[in-house]
Design a binder for these strands. Structure first.
Lengths: 339, 339
DNA sequence: CTGAAAGCGCTTACAG
DNA sequence: CTGAAAGCGCTTACAG
């Protein structure tokens, strides 16, 4: 069977290609009777319009792009990204948009090159941006390229002027964690964040410090890499440095570093939570399975992906810039803080 | 700046569109001088040919599709899929092919509908098939649709007659595991597999049984779902059933079930490995972090994805059907078997 | 409501 | 080696 085309359908039905197209796309310009006949025939023949022909004539790719730019090792072990992907995918599928996925290392130039290419080839209609960086060059680049985008976890201050984005209330997340530690008796804590180059880490750091200050708690900050080893090394360093009062709880920026912290405590012969309590800024199966299980901030990553994708669809369909705040996270209290 | 086109470049250079096209695509039909001028101008203008126009005139989408069809919860926690994706992506990027990703639940009809659509819209040039099922309807469907595909982990018996595929030597994997258990003194073991509907599970089951038989070992088989709870429940059930000699080691089909098994042992007050040893058929960070750490078969999932993608590219470029066997896995011995 | 025609931006025989 | 032209399969003003 030769591939059917719109011309073929038109001939079979004795009408013009235009009518078939109108019928297919729900456009006015055909009678209901004709429309039904077209739709029925398409269904009967299992026929779908060619995506590339459509893309060419509509000047719309029908796809959005996402670059996963992180240490491949991290991506593989971080459940965070899979959740994000699942959410994105579900929203895109509903909007009949395809997801174009690329994974590259931490090299920003590679990521930029992909955007240039996508824009030049008109391969995607828009882009999803995650992990907002301090002085992030990507928004300006995408604007120059004319590629619409949604910035996930944009700073609260970013009003929907030049781009769409989701915002996360890091202050509230920070407060949740610090409040819990204060309530369980901790007065001197450490905060092992992810890289300061991420905007969300800056905000978390400020949030934790301000909340702790409010309670008169001491907080030592340490910059980690999100890798398990970073959590391990941070603990070793922080607990070696004699501080008064001694650190009795450590907040770590993700689940991997929290696992590293647990390992380090074990090596040092320290008990958790009796000697040192642990809180993870990301929940995952690792936190649940660890012994002791780890108290963690549960952010709904699937929902986050979904909302970001929805904002992008909205932007592409109607040009509407919008900011949506993510629902606040929940602290799941487990054994690592005596839960 | 209006979008450049091939016609624009041709005009600027005072040559025909055809020449520009030939130059761009490395085709004969242009002098080296002209080719250079074209390439230089394209570079200077940051210009790339429109992917949809290309796709339409070449009748080639420039993308391959992959449907992740599994319990979303499983996908999120299984590092397996991320590794696969990373490998696939790296091979495709080198071949200048895009990856079209869809995630659906376990409903096979949904997956089939996606293939029909992709084929009808000519949205992808080929498809990557994972998790080969017993009586898998997908190969026949894809053949009917005219969509080339690669079957990952096809049975050894499948010669490259009708499709390309990778093969895994499950016998050797099984032997590796059983040998280790036998060497560490176990004579009565249980094997908690994944669903029997997967071809690879059938082969593992046979492999384990045959090898155990060779040693005169007893082996009880149990069908799990790959979910953590399945591993948990299996342990409870298997150890309750009094068998002689009592089961002293359990092999579980993936890392999640192995974690469940560990939890169940703890609940039952049994020590691992002293009372019951554990082996996981998939290695992951979970196996490393668990206490005790879990002996696991380390399959290189990144490589597996890469090879599958390479086979598909080969098939699409040259029509060559080929079978490639995956390198055999390595058993990483850890504390759960007394390592 | 319908049809003939141009256009989307490439590739590719076909003549020169 | 180069150019003019047809074709890929849709969509969309534009006339009727």
């Amino acid at each position: 069977m030769a591939k059917e085309t719109i011309a073929g359908l038109a001939k079979r039905l004795g009408i013009s290609k235009a009518s078939v197209s109108y019928a297919l796309n729900g456009q006015p310009g055909v009678s209901e009777v004709t429309r039904r006949r077209v739709l029925d025939l398409a269904e009967e023949l299992d026929w779908y319009p060619s995506s590339s022909a459509r893309a060419l004539s509509r000047s719309r790719a029908g796809a959005v792009g996402m670059v996963l730019s992180a240490d491949p090792l991290l991506i593989g072990t971080e459940p965070y990204y899979m959740g994000l992907l699942a959410g994105i995918e579900s929203a895109l599928a509903e909007g009949d948009m395809a997801l174009m996925l690329r994974m590259v290392g931490k090299d920003p130039l590679q990521e930029h090159a992909i955007y240039e290419r996508w824009s030049g080839e008109r391969k995607v209609d828009g882009v999803l941006l995650f992990d907002h960086l301090h002085d992030d060059p990507r928004p300006a680049l995408l604007e120059r390229l004319g590629l619409p985008f949604v910035l996930h976890s944009a700073p609260e201050s970013a009003r929907p002027t030049s781009f769409s984005g989701t915002t996360t209330d890091h202050d509230s997340d920070s407060a949740r964690i610090v409040d819990h530690l204060h309530a369980t008796g901790h007065r001197s804590i450490a905060h092992v964040s992810g890289p300061h180059s991420f905007v969300h880490e800056e905000e978390r750091i400020r949030g934790v410090r301000e909340r702790a200050d409010g309670y008169g708690m001491t907080v030592v900050q340490y910059e980690g890499s999100y890798a398990l080893e970073a959590g391990h090394d941070a603990i070793a360093l922080l607990l070696r440095a004699a501080s008064a009062p001694p650190i009795s709880a450590v907040v770590l920026g993700n689940d991997l570093m929290s696992m590293g912290a647990l390992l380090a405590l074990r090596e040092l012969g320290l008990r958790c939570p009796e000697d040192v309590a642990i809180v993870s800024w990301d929940d995952s199966l690792h936190c649940q399975l660890a012994s002791p299980s780890v108290t963690a901030l549960s952010r709904n990553t699937v929902l986050q992906g979904r909302v970001a994708a929805e904002l992008l669809l909205l932007l592409l369909d109607s040009g509407t810039l919008q900011t949506r705040s993510m629902p606040s996270s929940e602290l799941v209290v487990r054994a690592s803080t005596g839960g």
